[in-house]
């Protein structure tokens, strides 16, 4: 009887691994399709030549593949994965399936940082620095906001405080953004709004590399705490009873989540709903045990944003929709379903 049970758990683990493999295959497919979608026509052979025999490709194809499509497709994967895993951990540490990576006020803070950079203008700085001022400002303010929330959380250590502090941050920075609109010319204002909306258009390979590097460092740190996080999803009481230092875990997670989210949005703006929807889907597919939940969330997030990117490049009934609009269109009904279904 014992041996038979053993087989059953093994098969559960195997099934989960197969799911991950399947998700990875789906991601590869999305990546491929993303690389093949765009205004210019590109044959499969063109694509592979450009990627692997760079010298042989024509200049035009090389530019399309390396300057336009590849950075875009990679950013979709990386930012999608980052937002998904950040959202998933926010949901875990706040024990709330409606939490998202922006719960700590990061989205409005990042928008404010970007707005500030646009308003201050860059006439004094060199051109190379100019390109990175906006992301740097966005990153700094995003991180700053979550550190403020963390500090508040230290004073009164419970989940409700963290959530409320995050809401307060959102209001603060949204308010500051509105104040800005009085002092800036319309052009800049539009720039600010567009940045918040989010877009993958400007992604470069260097930006991809930075996001990748951050994920490469942070995700293993998340995986290290897999079991503690799984215990936390059973409730703060249970986790504490099992000997987990819950507030220390929360702190560590908040820092990691903030860094991941901040770097994901500082280059592309605040694209919504990925961090809310991807964890839900991943949980449905693979369960809440974090050794598998984390990779699943990464993959699902990457797939979702890649798919949204493909859709944003494909005319639907003759109209091309911005990527942020697509994530919103999928996300809002999703959110409604989630709210209606929510047991907690």
């Amino acid at each position: 009887m014992s041996a038979a049970r053993n087989v059953l758990y093994r098969s559960v683990t195997t099934r989960k691994l197969l799911c991950l493999v399947g998700l990875f295959a789906l991601l590869a497919l999305c990546f491929y399709q993303n690389m093949m979608t765009g205004a210019s026509s590109l044959s499969v052979r063109d694509l592979f030549t450009a990627l692997f025999q760079a010298a042989a490709a024509t200049e035009k194809i090389h530019i399309i593949v390396w300057t336009v499509r590849l950075p875009n497709a990679l950013m979709a994967i990386l930012a999608g994965a980052g937002l998904a895993v950040a959202g998933m951990e926010m949901q875990t540490i706040l024990n709330n399936s409606l939490a998202s990576p922006y719960t700590l006020g990061i989205s409005s803070a990042a928008s404010f940082g970007a707005a500030l950079s646009l308003v201050l203008g860059y006439s004094v700085l060199s051109e190379t620095l100019q390109n990175y001022i906006t992301p740097i400002f966005a990153f700094v303010f995003a991180l700053g906001s979550s550190m403020l929330v963390y500090a508040v959380g230290k004073i009164k250590k419970d989940r409700a405080t963290i959530i409320l502090a995050g809401i307060a941050m959102n209001f603060l920075f949204t308010g500051l953004n509105s104040v800005f609109s009085y002092f800036v010319p319309d052009e800049t204002l539009r720039g600010i709004t567009n940045w918040s909306y989010g877009s993958l258009v400007g992604a470069t390979l260097l930006e991809d590399a930075i996001v990748f590097a951050v994920l490469l460092v942070c995700v293993p740190l998340l995986l290290r705490e897999s079991w503690k996080l799984t215990s936390l999803s059973m409730g703060e009481q249970t986790a504490k009873a099992l000997g987990v230092d819950v507030s220390k875990l929360r702190t560590k997670m908040m820092i990691l989540v903030s860094v991941i989210t901040a770097v994901s949005v500082c280059f592309i703006g605040t694209i919504g709903f990925i961090g809310l929807v991807a964890p839900y889907i991943a949980k449905r597919i693979i369960g809440q045990e974090q050794r598998f939940y984390i990779p699943a969330a990464l993959l699902v997030g990457a797939i979702l944003l890649s798919a949204a990117s493909i859709l944003s490049k494909t005319p639907i009934f003759g109209v091309t929709f911005a990527i942020a609009l697509i994530t919103n269109m999928i996300g809002i009904p999703f959110l409604l379903i989630l709210i209606l279904q929510n047991k907690r």
Binding site: W66, L205, D208, A209, A213, L216, V217
Partner: peptide, 17 residues
């Protein structure tokens, strides 16, 4: 270090003519 190295490599990779 691995991360930084990778970033440098990737960044250098796709320079257009």
């Amino acid at each position: 270090c691995l991360a930084l190295a990778l970033s440098v490599i990737l960044a250098g990779c796709g320079t257009p003519p």
